[in-house]
Amino acid sequence: MSGAAGIQRQRRARLTRRLRFLGLCAMLVLALCALILSLGQSFTPPATVLRVLGGEAVPGAGFTVLQLRLPRAVVGALAGLSFGMGGAAFQTLLRNPLASPDIIGISAGASAAAVFAITVLGLAGLPVAVVAVTAGLGIALLIYLLSWRQGVAGARLILVGIGLSGMMQSLTAYMLSQAESWTLQAAMRWMTGSLNGVQLEQALPLLAALAICGGVLLIAAPALEVMRMGDETAAGLGVRTGAVRAAVVVAAVGLVAVATAMVGPVAFVAFLSGPIAARMTGRDGSLLLPAALVGAVLVLTADYAGQFWLPARYPVGIVTGVLGAPYLLFLIIRSNRTGGGL
């Protein structure tokens, strides 16, 4: 039975590759957090950082580490996990890398709703996240209804989504311009995403969303993988395709919308994480967990680069935008060349 031995070898090789990638990403996230905590405008020795995190009052370092750096690292990592997983869930479900929530208007809708909640309704904190999630679900439903014509075809759904995304972005810009008091910093957050001025309390809604929505997605992951073979084959394998689709959409929108309500629609993180994870781990298993970790690495790296590696300080969304735009162009050019619609 050389066949069985070959199968074992293949399975083991694949599992090793996957675990190695997950481990590498997790270590990278931790390393980035350590970097962010100790090296900013000034250098804080790692030993001091640990003492501060341990609850010791260290004059000078305490404020910098706990108030400025820690929220940035924690909220950035959690938002990255959310964007990465939510994006990969959409891309897998709709079998198209362009069908990512930040391309088809779900992030933009959540952002517009957050701005509305803050500037018009005067809300703050958790209620903003609730409004953003509701708007994200509303946009998802609207895309679905507008692109429905005896079934939902990929290209139509994506074009409708891009259109809605544009509308939502102009709505955000309009509301910001009408707001009584708004700063460039706030505008930057709601237009492109930014970690400037984040608070540690903002990690709580993100943690809750990751626990609930992320949990749902990870439970649905095997069924979602089977659905990549088409609805009929999946149904033949015992998958309740309608229920899985609804659960995945709601959970993915929840993740992306909560993250957007906290840090703004950080450009292209949801869009890039899945394809990067697929390139690194292969396309045989579920991408949700690898993509989540890639998302965290992307956000933390881009935010750090935007703060310290570039001539001026840029918000994270500007940096990820610069990274994502070429890939978007590449996908569009490739799909034109292969004649495969979008």
Partner: peptide, 25 residues
């Protein structure tokens, strides 16, 4: 079991993985 007409294979999937998906239920 049911095998639909002209089923679609996901992108970049190996034979082993496709066949393994038959174990889903």
């Amino acid at each position: 079991g049911l095998l639909p007409q002209a089923p679609q294979a996901p992108e970049a999937i190996t034979v082993l993985d496709l066949v393994s998906r038959g174990r889903h239920p």
